[in-house]
Design a protein around this nucleic acid. Structure first.
Lengths: 351, 351
DNA sequence: CACCGTGATTGAAACGTGTCAATGACAATC
DNA sequence: GATTGTCATTGACACGTTTCAATCACGGTG
């Protein structure tokens, strides 16, 4: 790291031209060293590289992407930066991007349409190489617009994107619900509550379908074996508030297990239980969905359905790379199967 | 949103020139409409705006920042994208940036020197307008390099940055430790364990100083009233493993409260307690530090020292803005005072 | 009527890079 | 020795925007 004797920030920025004259070659050669090193003779290349180091040159990516038309930036549009589910995905996307020499522009739609639209416009303005996006709903018009701008994208957690429209990476929510149901039924539970948000959220709707299927295949009647408890949002507060509703269990016999559509709900539920002096799994078995980090941290540990979040992110990013320099790329739909993680919050039903 | 009849992505991108000819004006005028609308007559401005809408023009930021020298991107370099502490800060930075019409490039140093350096080079390449950085240690040479590149920055969570070098925003860790100590002592605890990582981490070292001060001012002898338990990392696993060490309490009488340097440690500790059939606060009072979301989610709720994370992020970003178009800006150091959040994990000591 | 001032618009010149046809050097082949 | 081919390098232009001096139109003033 060459120390500039001048203490104040150097104003004139050093460009490809300065490097060229310092190395006694033409700007074109410097550009070649940077982009296609194999085309330039070893001796000159080393001279140029020395000049780059001496002048502490760093390539101006504005100029670069203006000329070449492509940028080394990809966008990642998430629904909520603070949600641990998304950050794990983000880590996967980032790691894969770093390996490919790409920078990740993290954008947050905060589940608002206007912000989603604004952020996509921003990506278009950057002429980003591509985008990994978690759409806030099943309206694809924003993404179609992005395609029209020539920016490829991969949808995350949206299994319902037609392959003519774009790539998607998601987890089989029905399989997840099914596995959860089988687990609880296998433990002897015959009255199960499903604590969930509105079914307009496709993901939780599918989890319910899977759960119902598990009940049916066990020879139980979904109408009596399943208890549906709806809350407006999938957050801990709602989970805590729902304890009474779940324990009441309607006019019929009280349920012995609750499957929450989401870990956040489940954690809130566990807390609510504790407040009332009750415990999982002694008083009721509790299951979550997602396997966020905290699920392992509470006592008892939360049995849950794990989504391969990190892998989801990496896969999305690598799928996106398939689009680059390859206009005739066919879109793909990748579906992962979730896995049950057994912890202490579920146990066999003692009749 | 004008629907292009051509189903395939439009290849030729529409630029300022297309808009100009479509509106019957010169490119310069279009640029003026975009950047200094007040200079152009209302009538022509409306015509240009109509053209922009009709052609669905979006400004190419590469061209823009190449010419103008400034970019509308700021970098945010965090130590760990998945850490809830940082994501909350990130949200603050982002909100403030959005308000200022800036995009945030989120970068992750993963606590590695090489990655920190690479990410800062990337920002320099983008000619970013500025950067909010959480440095991985007290070595400022990378940041000095950034300054030399003409990119202003604000350090986060590093109170020890001299104001000649740059701005910083941080929280008073000594005050936090002091407040925690006073709280526990006020509850009657006279033997307190401090569960912590290595003191080479400046933040936790300062928290310990505060704690010691609280003990002294209460007329207790730090040597006998404080019990130091060191673990290599500040994560939940270490917290869980440390339970035995804390409960053993050395040759002297067992401590009745534990102050963890970090919520993650505290949560692990709580889990470890549960595993052994013990409970906070009945068997031991437990305090954390940070007030991450989950702290409110466990049962009992974790009493902790809250850092104003969101505000920290917003402040850093607004401080950064002070640098723009203002080369003679004087650096500032902003110090926040943390606040105790009382929950269920601490209680009065019953002798 | 000539002159000036004001406000709106224009045209051309950059910004730093990638690309590509053209040039040059030099060895191999006929 | 003339021709061809290969490989390394060069020079000039283009990408889309901003900027700024120059131009133009037009109403007011002397």
């Amino acid at each position: 790291m060459p120390d500039n004797p001048n203490p104040t920030a150097t104003r004139r920025s050093v460009g490809i031209t300065q490097v060229a004259s310092h190395a006694g070659v033409s700007p074109g050669t410097v550009s070649n060293v940077l982009n296609r090193p194999e085309r330039v003779a070893t001796e000159t290349r080393e001279r140029v590289e020395a000049a780059i180091r001496e002048l502490d040159y760093v390539r101006n990516s504005s100029g670069s992407s203006l000329r070449s038309g492509r940028s080394d930036c990809v966008g990642l549009l998430v629904l909520d930066v603070t949600n641990p589910y998304f950050t794990e995905v983000a880590r996967g996307v980032e790691d894969e991007a770093v390996d490919a020499g790409l920078a990740v522009l993290l954008l947050n739609s905060a589940e608002e349409h206007t912000r989603q639209e604004r952020n996509l416009r921003l990506l278009a303005g950057q002429r980003a190489a591509g985008a990994v996006v978690m759409p806030i709903d099943d309206d694809l018009s924003d993404l179609r617009w992005l395609s029209k701008q020539g920016i490829p994208w991969v949808a995350l957690d949206r299994g319902d994107v037609p392959t003519e429209e774009g790539c998607s990476v998601s987890v089989d929510n029905e399989a997840g619900g099914l596995a959860a149901g089988r687990h609880l039924i296998g433990l002897g539970h015959e009255r199960i509550a499903f604590l969930t948000g509105p079914f307009s959220i496709d993901q939780v709707h599918r989890r319910h379908l899977g759960l119902t299927q598990a009940v049916s295949e066990a020879g139980l009647d979904p109408d009596t074996a399943l208890d549906l408890v709806h809350v407006p949002q999938l957050n801990p507060e709602q989970g805590e508030k729902a304890v009474d509703a779940v324990l009441a269990g309607g006019p019929r016999q009280r349920c012995t297990a609750v499957f929450c559509a989401n870990d956040q709900l489940a954690l809130g539920f566990l807390k609510g239980l504790g407040r009332r002096g009750l415990r999982a799994p002694d008083d009721i078995s509790v299951m979550g969905y997602d396997d966020i980090d905290v699920a392992a941290l509470v006592h008892p540990g939360l049995t849950t359905v794990a989504q391969p979040k990190y892998k989801l992110g990496r896969t999305a990013m690598s799928l996106l790379q398939g689009h680059f320099d390859n206009p005739e790329h066919r879109h793909e739909r990748r579906l992962f199967t979730p896995e049950i993680v057994l912890r202490g919050s579920t146990a066999a039903h003692r009749p």
